[in-house]
Simulated scan of single mutants.
Amino acid sequence: MDDSAEPRRSWRDGVRDGAPFGAATFVLAASFGVVATDAGMPTLAVVVMSVLVYSGSGQFAALGIVGAGGGVGAAVGAATLVSSRFLPMGLALGPSLRGGRLRRAVEGQATVDASWAMAARGDGGYDREYLFGHSAIQYVLWVLGTGVGVAVPELDVRALGLDAVFPAFFLALLVAEVRDRLRLAVALAGAALALALVPVAPPGLPVLVAAAAALAGLRAPR
């Protein structure tokens, strides 16, 4: 059957299908809340960050740099680089959104990795309402999970394994992206560059340099 003939999925369908992703999001957010509080971030700042940023990869990247003693600029730069994948994702999604540029930009803020992938149709378009529902349940559970993490600061993150969620999350992102030899080579080169800079560069700078080098490597002609 032609994919374009498939019925549009609803907001409710998105909420239902997004619930399992939301459960995983809740655990990750609780880990972020606990680790951020343990690193010394004010409780309110942690929750507000999750409410406004809503990006696990970006928030963990910023937290890692700040926790290592890096400055706000380095943290923002790292979060921006890590989240740069949303630019091409947004360009692909744009035609499926409604209204003018401003409205489409606002609607595009609902995009996260899972909802973007799940809302895709075979004809190159996206189910707009489905994406909103899929993202909505994840957003609610992300904020709630962060709240739980900061509300119980006495949790032993190591005993519960929550400290392992942070590196495991980034490892999962890396495994998903390394699909060919070029990407693997670029990832290894970036890791080697970061490790070489750690002893001599200020906290946060190795991550920024390695990320920039990785982007340049992926854009280089084959």
Rank of each mutant, 00 (worst) to 15 (best):
S4E: 13
S4H: 14
S4F: 13
E6L: 12
P7N: 09
P7W: 15
R8W: 12
R9M: 03
W11I: 12
W11P: 08
R12E: 10
D13Y: 08
G14F: 05
G14M: 00
V15A: 14
V15H: 12
V15E: 14
R16W: 14
D17M: 07
G18S: 07
G18F: 04
A19V: 15
A19C: 12
P20L: 04
P20G: 02
F21P: 00
G22I: 06
G22P: 00
G22M: 05
G22H: 07
A23M: 15
A23I: 15
A24L: 13
T25K: 01
V27C: 08
L28P: 06
L28N: 07
L28A: 13
S31P: 03
F32C: 00
V35M: 15
V35L: 15
A36M: 07
T37W: 00
D38Y: 01
D38G: 11
D38M: 04
D38Q: 13
D38K: 10
A39C: 04
A45Y: 15
V46R: 05
V46Q: 01
V46L: 09
V48P: 07
V48W: 14
V48M: 14
M49R: 08
S50F: 09
V51R: 11
V51Q: 12
L52D: 15
V53N: 13
Y54F: 14
Y54W: 13
S55G: 13
Q59T: 01
Q59N: 10
F60Q: 03
F60T: 03
F60C: 05
A61P: 01
A61K: 04
A62R: 04
A62S: 05
G64K: 06
I65R: 01
I65Y: 14
V66I: 13
G71Q: 07
V72I: 14
V72G: 08
V72R: 07
G73D: 06
G73M: 06
A74Y: 08
A74C: 02
A75H: 06
V76N: 06
G77A: 12
G77D: 08
G77H: 04
A78Y: 06
A78D: 01
L81P: 05
L81S: 03
L81A: 09
V82E: 03
V82Y: 07
S83N: 15
R85S: 10
L87K: 12
P88K: 01
A92T: 09
L93I: 01
G94M: 09
G94T: 12
P95H: 11
P95R: 09
R98K: 13
G99F: 11
G99N: 00
G100N: 03
R101A: 12
R101L: 11
L102D: 04
R103N: 01
R103Q: 04
R103S: 06
R103A: 08
R104V: 05
A105T: 01
A105E: 04
G108C: 02
G108S: 08
A110E: 08
A110F: 11
A110Q: 09
A110M: 09
A110P: 03
T111L: 11
T111A: 10
D113F: 11
D113T: 05
A114S: 10
A114H: 05
A114R: 03
S115A: 14
A117R: 11
A117W: 12
M118D: 12
A119S: 14
A120R: 14
A120F: 10
R121S: 04
G122L: 06
G122H: 12
D123W: 13
D123L: 07
G124L: 00
G125K: 07
Y126P: 02
R128K: 08
E129N: 10
E129W: 11
L131E: 11
G133Y: 13
H134W: 08
S135F: 11
